[in-house]
Amino acid sequence: MKIRLNGEDYETEAETLKQLIQELQITTDRVAVELNLTIIRKADHDATTIKENDAVEIIQFVGGG
């Protein structure tokens, strides 16, 4: 199915946030995840299902002042 991932169209097999993050091979210890503008805590990634056209944002820390 097609979702919006970090502002881009993205095709995924994942059914939950946890599966999506695994599919992306992202380690979750230093990222934060938002689903349709709501922050989803790490503990809830497994139980959070994603559906067509959902907007997922995954952020990390980068250099900044």
Partner: peptide
């Protein structure tokens, strides 16, 4: 540090 999107196309890139 700043808060920005993870690079989805280049996920292996180094982390600050």
């Amino acid at each position: 540090v700043a808060v920005r999107r993870v690079n989805i196309t280049d996920r292996k890139s180094e982390n600050l």
